[in-house]
């Protein structure tokens, strides 16, 4: 009961938070003055007329970081249950975790040596 009740309230909290933000935007939409004109609604750049679309291709190096992030984040998720039960498992868990982390550190060293971490 303790578990289900806690997560139920959390779900309600997320819904309420979204509702709070939406209510704030709606209130301002009701009360704010509306006087649009062509120049006001143009994209803010250095004062000149904007040229072209802003959705350009961006650098592939960002994707490299995203891939690295996925690998290490999954590692972190695997480590959470290990951390919680660590006390009960003792030496075996310690050695297992060290092996697990070392494999991933090996991956980090590989990426490092391949210069993917270099910001060009």
């Amino acid at each position: 009961m303790f578990y289900i009740q806690g997560y139920g309230i959390l779900f309600a909290f997320i819904l309420f938070s979204v509702a709070f933000a939406m209510a704030a935007i709606t209130t301002s939409w009701v009360v704010h003055p509306k006087a649009p004109n062509k120049n006001k609604n143009s994209t803010y750049e250095c004062g000149m007329k904007t040229f072209g679309d802003s959705r350009l291709q961006f650098d592939v190096k960002y994707y490299m970081y995203a891939l690295m992030f996925i690998i290490f984040d999954i590692e972190a998720i695997f480590l959470f249950p290990w951390a919680v039960t660590y006390n009960k498992l003792g030496l075996f868990a310690l050695i297992e975790a060290i092996v697990f982390i070392l494999i991933l550190v090996l991956g980090l060293v590989y990426v490092w040596k391949k210069d993917f971490l270099k910001w060009k």
């Binding site: 909290f13 938070s17 301002s28 009360v31 509306k34 609604n41 143009s42 994209t43």
Partner: peptide, 30 residues
């Protein structure tokens, strides 16, 4: 800020432009 005009530029993506602040704010509040 509540009574300021809410300017939305013509070439923005209107729906995502409105959803983005909600997604940014709601998790912090929860």
């Amino acid at each position: 800020l509540l009574f300021k005009e809410d300017i939305m530029a013509t070439n923005t993506n209107k729906i995502l432009f409105t959803i983005a602040p909600i997604i940014f704010f709601a998790p912090v509040m929860a």
